[in-house]
């Protein structure tokens, strides 16, 4: 602590205020009183601080103490926070603002996702999709172990007229009677390929007849080249 007399600083600031406000312990009080009796500058300092303290004490006693405590009125109904205000208070807290923003974003993403998943247009698009024309594959199937899919396909094919051509590929014409069964030849098409239990063999791969119009055909000479 520094004093007005520019004497050596004594580190008794805490002890002075504790002593002035009567909050020093018995031991602290004794120690401080012994020091005061030996240090003139600290005694002057103590007197100056005491004077300032009692000036404030006088002010409090003369002007504040006689005052009556004013009644505090809380407008309980009006003071209740409305919904909008409570929402606004949420966003004044940074952590809650971040959490609220994240929640809103998550809900938005979920909404968009669910909307697209349940969209009737989407379902209609799926159902209206035409199967892609893929080459038919005719693997050799062992007659003693026909696959269930083959049996199912066979039954369906047997119902077809003999000269029909399905858009699903070339179908081997079958006899109306199932009694005299020819050597089973399994035709694998685009639609049932996924149900096949065996991978198609490239050895028996037959390229379909390509009837599409090509750009080269437009510029071909008369007689043009034939397509494959």
């Amino acid at each position: 602590m520094l004093n007005n007399g520019n004497n050596k600083a004594c580190d008794f600031a805490d002890e002075i205020v504790s002593y002035i406000y009567d909050e020093a312990t018995v031991a602290e009080r004794s120690k401080f009183e012994r020091h005061l009796s030996a240090c003139g500058s600290c005694t002057d300092e103590f007197a100056a601080i005491s004077d300032a303290r009692f000036a404030v004490f006088d002010w409090q006693r003369e002007e504040f103490a006689p005052l009556a405590t004013p009644p505090i009125r809380i407008p309980y109904d009006a003071a209740e926070v409305g919904f909008i205000e409570s929402v606004r208070l949420w966003f004044t807290i940074p952590a809650m603002s971040a959490g609220a923003a994240l929640l809103i974003l998550s809900l938005g993403v979920a909404y968009v996702f669910l909307r697209n998943a349940d969209s009737p247009d989407m379902a209609a698009n799926v159902s209206s999709m035409k199967p892609v024309d893929m080459p038919s594959i005719s693997p050799e199937v062992r007659a003693d172990k026909p696959s269930p899919d083959v049996a199912t396909a066979r039954e369906k094919v047997s119902e077809l007229p003999s000269d029909s051509e399905s858009s699903q590929g070339t179908a081997t014409p079958r006899r109306a009677s199932s009694k005299a069964r020819p050597k089973p030849t399994r035709i694998v098409t685009a639609n049932n390929a996924v149900r096949s239990n065996r991978a198609p063999s490239l050895a028996t791969y037959q390229d379909p007849e390509d009837k599409s119009l090509r750009l080269s055909d437009l510029f071909a000479d008369d007689g043009g080249r034939s397509d494959k």
Binding site: A13, D14, V17, Y21, E23, A48, I49, D51, R53, V56
Partner: peptide, 28 residues
């Protein structure tokens, strides 16, 4: 009390006493 001020303001006891000393010094 100093302890009550210390707890209310969440300050160390020595800081409370130091501030009070400085305040009285400036007042003087």
């Amino acid at each position: 009390t100093f302890q009550e001020i210390s707890e209310t303001l969440d300050l160390p006891l020595s800081t409370v006493k130091s501030r009070l000393y400085t305040a009285l010094k400036q007042l003087k």
